[in-house]
Structures are given as structure tokens and as C-alpha cells.
Amino acid sequence: MKVFLSFVLAVFITSGVSQSRAQQAPPNPEPDSRYKVDILEVVGHPDDDIEVVQN
């Protein structure tokens, strides 16, 4: 009987240990939202941006 209880206890402890290892991972760092844009203009020269300023 003692042997059986020891076995149950060992299984319980072991499973508890493995459960405690499954921790929630920290959140994946988001891309830096400070630089998120709606429109990206790609132009050749300073002053080319004026082409669409009126917009």
C-alpha cells in the first residue's frame, strides 16, 4: 500500500511540475506604432512632395 501511495504521489508531483512549466509566454512585441502611416510617398527629390500636397 505504501508503495502504491508513493507511486501516486510521485505521479501527482511530476505532473504538477510539468503543468507549472506551461506558463503563458510574454506578448509578442508589437511593431512600433509611432511610425505607422496611411500613405507613404516615394519621390525623387526635395520638392517632389508638392505634387500631391494639394491633395
Binding site: 511593431p31 505607422k36 502611416v37 507613404l40 510617398e41 519621390v43 517632389d48
Partner: peptide, 29 residues
Amino acid sequence: LIRVTRPEVILTWMPNYVVGENHEDHQAA
């Protein structure tokens, strides 16, 4: 810079040869 700024829309010069200023830097952009 697209991966940094994650734009929804890109505005740029038309890649084409045209009568006008037709600047090669515009086309290349």
C-alpha cells in the same frame, strides 16, 4: 521603410517615359 511604416497606400511617380519633365529620378522612384 515600408516594413517600418506599414503604409496602406503608396503614392509615387509614374514609371513611364513621357513628354514633359520626364525626369529619370522621378521614374526611378
